[in-house]
Structures are given as structure tokens and as C-alpha cells.
Design a protein around this nucleic acid. Structure first.
Lengths: 351, 351
DNA sequence: AGCCTCTCCCTAAACGATTAGAAAGTAGTG
DNA sequence: CACTACTTTCTAATCGTTTAGGGAGAGGCT
């Protein structure tokens, strides 16, 4: 196209002022039916499409919500997004995902860059699955961008920021209890780094269950991806002290993939030689060999809750702005929520 | 924050003009070291973050690439995105995904809405996994937004638009040949709708293999998600004529999930009662029960190819604009590429 | 007529950045 | 000192929208 039509072009073609054209296109009042029809017809004929950058600049609109994830190959995020999308759909807002560990590993620099980027694009709000630095939370706050933490604790001094947490402590006790029922006393927890705040709770619950039932718990830490998990576990099994435990708990989805790969390579039978429980239910769990016993934290409804909370806060900001007040996020005590997780018992635990 | 600092604020604080401040921030020439330091210091102190909407409006920058997918729960897209991200990282461009079938089903209205949205945000370029309507391709073209098709054929009259296609025909012949080697003569192809252009090629290859080896091929069509696949296959098996075939070919990843669920529910053993081959390799395929024989189309390198092609075209547009020429996409004949796919033989086929 | 109320439309000023074109300052040169 | 060349800076226009603040005209009412 030689030239992209602008609102001014529409105004010239129709003979109406830009004000009227704008109102007509946005379905606003103060326009006669005749004018509106004229404008819409001209818009169709010229192939006019409004320039979002100009709209946002003028309106300070901020219509998109960012979801900060780490490693999208974790199935957990797919379900989480599904829940978020379901709430946002229908509203005029949309979700975009920012993968903080796309390069494979997390670094503070990437976190800072992503937060910077979100502010640059004047994101309306943020849902994060990772504990952000206190500085970044403060930075977002200073730009009036509300943040909701899901499955990750807000930094300590951000006491009012909303969070949807799973009771990982209770869930881990359940999981450990089940292993104990089977009579296993030698457990290995393959865990991702403590940067993800769920790690501590999961470990604490397992530790308590182990103590209570007289089991030995070994914790093995690895980076948060399948490949690292595979290498770490392999190396562990090859060390003199690293005998095969009676039960393995995989910290999350990618780690589970690493564990299964190792067991398959070494032809270690599940559950007869080693029992296996993993955190985070996902679509293929029942179809694995053997069907997998998992802790199910229902990430889709967590997504729904998070999006609903954020939506309420954003709507409140709009309301406040319309009244001419500063758009400070309206954080409420009840926005700090904790949901429970169940144990889905299949066969990999020995059942 | 009471007020968000703008470039004008920086200008007032430093006593320099907005021109100088802008240059200093963007690392441009024409600024003394002293001024630059002054500006950067002030920017840090005030917590200044540029407004992207204003920048884009003024510069007509267009820095983001959209990837149009259908149903993100298809593992294929994760790998594709990985490839795309790998190319884009480092460049100043970033990728955003637009899920065209997020609601579950595809409708032309959603397609139109998404294309409209991409134009509104003045997207730099598009990578699509779905054959778009001829009108939409033309529309994007008229806004000088280049499109690259991956694993989906461009509409017929868009003969110059780049595409990275898999040779699904040859791959399907391979798959069919392998089934024939096992002596199976009764095949069922569970297929997604023909709107995805790979469907036709896959069916054609299977058909030809069946004819050549004297096998009977039944094609069963379902919507493109696991749940529909499950229902469709279940219903088929329950009809009087719908006897269990000797081999099932699952059209893609979500459909495979549906098939496996049905087989598990009905306690049908793979591969002894029915053999199974699926299109599209994915991370969990080797870990399923039994390990799955799949057609592997290496979607990650397809992503790399697509992103490289698009990058070249976008850079060409920038170059042209700098010379004052119109930014028409430079499509070349060699941008129409076809890659091959292999058969990864595991055990679900009977091997 | 005078006054009010409505409806529809317009003018002109934003929003926050970039940048062409002009100008001021500084230094070197003959 | 006049001239040139270069560096650094400024002024003001511009990108494509939205919207505050008027205002014209029509109709109804007293």
C-alpha cells in the first residue's frame, strides 16, 4: 500500500472532523446515525485500522497483562495460562507471557530486563510465578502496576501484595505419608533451586513426614530443566554413596522427565525397584509407564483466581482514575490466598 | 508514585533540551560525555523509563513478531517457539504468540479478529502455523507486514509468500510402509480437519502406502483437541461397523492423547491388540507405555528456518526505508522450502 | 420572543517520544 | 582577525489518536 490510511484521512474523505470520526469508530455518543454510517463505510473502503500506539499514548490505556514464567516447557504453565485466559477473555484485556528463563537459566539481569520491558510497554498488571526481587516489586509499584504472585512468595517486605499459594507443606506431608504407608524408608527428593519459593515448603513437608515415619530423606538439587535433572541424578547414582533409594520424589514436571529418562536408560523398574511420585499433575501423567502418582495443585483454578484478583484491582484503578484519584492498587488482606493440593494415586508409587 | 517521569522532566532537571536527553539515552552521537553522564544519572534518580507507545508512534518501529498457533497444548508449538526464540534472541525483536483456537475451536471470525489485532499493534512480521484466508494475507500485505507459513500451505494465489513445509507425503509413505512390514492390513487414520493443510498430505501418503501394500485405510475426522479425539474414536468403536483396526495412526499430539486415553480405558493392549504410530515427536513419547513410534518433523529447526527467513525480510524492509523506498517484503523463490521428516521407531508399532 | 434543553459537531490541545534544520560555541589556520 | 570546520545544543514540528470546551441549530415551553 502506498500510504496507510489514518484517522485524518477518514476525516478528509468524509468531510467530518476527527472528533466525529473517532467517536463514530469507538461507538461513542454524540454522533448521528448518518455520520456513523458514513464513517464506517469509508473506514471499510480505505482499509483503515487504528494505530494502537497512538491510542495508548493518548489514553494511557494499558490493556495487557503479563505473565512471568520460568521455562515454559513446564506443563504447569500451560494449565495456568488456560485459567488466566479464561478469565481475561471477554474482558478487553489480554495476556502476554514473558519467559524469564528462556535461555535455560535464570539470572537477575534477565529479571531486571524483563521488568524494565514491562514498564516500558506500560503493562496493566503482572502475574508472576517467580519471586521477584524486592527492588523490582517496588519499581512496579512506583509505576502503579499491580502484581499478583502465584505459587511463589512475594518478597518479605511486600506484605500487602496479593498471592495465590498452594499449601505445598500439607501436600508434601500427604505425599510422604503415602510413601510411608508403602513401607518405604529411604527417600530421595530431586529438587529445583530455592529461588522458586515452593521448594522450601515442599522440602519442609517431606522432611517432617520422613521424621514422623522414621524414613531417611536425601535432597538432591538440580537446575530447573530436564537435562540438568538427568545429569544430576545420573551423577548421584554413580557416586559411591549414591545408592538407589526406595522412593524418588520429583520436584516438578521437567525434573520428572529427567528422572524417567534416567530410570529408563538404566532399566530400573518402577515401582518394583524404585517408587516414584512427582509434583504437578499434567495431561500425560496417566499414560506414562507406569501411570504416575502425582501431587495435583490444580493450576488452572489458580490461574483463574489470580486473574480474577488482578482484574478486580485493575478495574479499581480505572474507577479511581475516572474519579481523578491516583490509581494506587487496592490490595486487600483476603487477596493472600492459599489453596490445597491433592494426591492423585496411580501406580508409580506401588499401588 | 505521584507522577511518572517523562523525558520532559529529565530535560527540566538537567537543564538540557529534550533533543540532547533523547540522544544521550539512546546512545547516539552528538552528545558530550559530560551531558550524557548528567542525563543518565538523572534518569536513574528519577526512575525514568521511556514510554514505548510514544517511541513506536514516532519511529514507526514495529519490533515484535507474532506467531499464530492453534491450540497451544500441542507440544509441537513449544518446540517451534524454542527455535524461533533462539533466532530472535540477540536481535532487538521479540516474539509474541497469538492463539487462534484458544477457545477450543477455530472460527473465521477469530482469525479475522486476530489479524486485525496484529495490524492494530503494527506487528513487524507474522509466522503462522495455519493457512490464513486469502483476504487476510492480502490485508497483511497491504500493511507491508511479511508473513511466513510454517507447516501450512499459503493460500493458492499467494504464490510468492515464504513457507517452510515438511514433506508430509513422503513421511506418511514411510510410516505406512513400516506398518505394512509388520503385516498389518487394516489401518485407521485419526485426523484433524482439513483446514490444517498438512492433513491432506498426510492422508495422501497413507492412502498411497495402503494401496501399494494392499491395506485398507479408514480415515476418521475429529476436531483438533484431545477431548474430541477421545469422543470420536470411542463413538466409532461403538458403532456396528467400527471394529478395532490392527493399526492406528494419530494425526498429531493432542489426538494421540485422546487415542491413548481411549485405549487405556478399554484396556486395549498396544501393540499386541492394536499398533500405534503418531505424528510429531515430543518429549514424553519415549516414556509412554509403550514407547511411541512417531514421525519426527524436527519442529525446532523449522522454527529456526522460519525466523531466519522473516528476519532477513524485515531487515530488508528497514534497509529500504532508510533509502526512502517503500518497504515491500522481499520474497524470494528459495524462501519456499521443504524439509524432510524421519520415522523414529520405538515399540508402539510392534517392534 | 425569550429561554432552555438537546443533539451533533468542531477547534485545538494534549499524550511522550524522535529528529530535521538552524545556531551557538570552540578551535584551528593562514 | 576573518574564515572554516567541527562539536554540541536548541527550537519546533511531527507521529495518530482522544477529548475538554465551546458553539450552532432545532425544537419545545412559557
Amino acid at each position: 500500500m502506498a500510504k496507510k490510511p489514518t484517522l485524518r484521512d477518514l476525516s478528509e474523505v468524509t468531510g467530518l472532523s476527527s472528533y466525529t470520526v473517532s467517536r463514530a469508530l469507538s461507538n461513542g455518543a454524540d454522533v448521528s446515525d448518518a455520520s456513523r454510517k458514513l464513517v464506517l463505510k469509508a473506514a471499510r473502503e480505505l482499509g483503515y485500522v487504528p494505530n494502537r500506539a497512538a491510542q495508548e499514548l493518548r489514553k494511557k490505556s494499558r490493556s495487557s497483562v503479563a505473565v512471568i514464567t520460568a521455562s515454559t516447557s513446564n506443563y504447569y504453565y500451560l494449565d495456568l495460562m488456560k485459567g488466566i485466559q479464561r478469565v481475561l477473555r471477554g474482558s478487553s484485556r489480554n495476556a502476554v507471557v514473558a519467559d524469564i528463563a528462556a535461555e535455560g537459566v535464570y539470572t537477575p539481569e534477565v529479571e531486571d530486563a524483563i521488568v524494565q520491558d514491562l514498564i516500558q510497554s506500560r503493562t496493566a498488571g503482572v502475574i508472576t510465578t517467580l519471586t521477584l526481587s524486592a527492588e523490582n516489586v517496588k519499581l512496579l509499584e512506583s509505576w502503579d502496576i499491580p502484581v499478583v504472585f502465584v505459587d511463589s512468595a512475594p518478597p518479605e517486605d511486600a506484605t500487602r501484595v496479593p498471592s495465590i499459594l498452594t499449601d505445598n507443606y500439607a501436600a508434601s506431608i500427604k505425599a510422604g505419608g503415602h510413601l510411608a504407608e508403602h513401607g518405604y524408608t529411604d527417600w530421595l527428593f530431586l529438587a529445583y533451586p530455592g529461588r522458586w519459593s515452593t521448594r522450601a515448603e515442599r522440602e519442609r513437608g517431606l522432611r517432617e513426614a520422613a521424621d514422623k515415619h522414621g524414613a531417611a530423606l536425601q535432597v538432591l538439587e538440580t537446575e530447573n530443566d530436564s537435562d540438568s535433572a538427568r545429569k544430576t541424578l545420573s551423577a548421584y547414582l554413580d557416586t559411591p554413596g549414591g545408592a538407589l533409594p526406595r522412593a524418588i520424589i520429583a520436584g516438578n514436571n521437567p525434573l520428572l522427565h529427567g528422572v524417567l529418562t534416567v530410570l529408563q536408560q538404566r532399566e530400573i523398574a518402577v515401582p518394583t525397584q524404585v517408587a516414584l511420585i512427582a509434583f504437578d499433575e499434567f495431561a500425560w501423567a496417566p499414560l506414562l509407564d507406569p501411570p504416575l502418582t502425582v501431587v495435583d495443585e490444580d493450576s488452572e483454578s489458580i490461574g483463574v483466581l489470580a486473574a480474577q484478583t488482578l482484574t478486580r484491582i485493575l478495574d479499581g484503578q480505572l474507577e479511581a482514575e475516572r474519579r481523578g484519584e491516583p490509581p494506587v492498587p487496592d490490595y486487600r488482606p483476603e487477596d493472600r490466598r492459599e489453596v490445597t493440593a491433592d494426591l492423585i494415586v496411580r501406580q508409580s508409587c506401588g499401588c
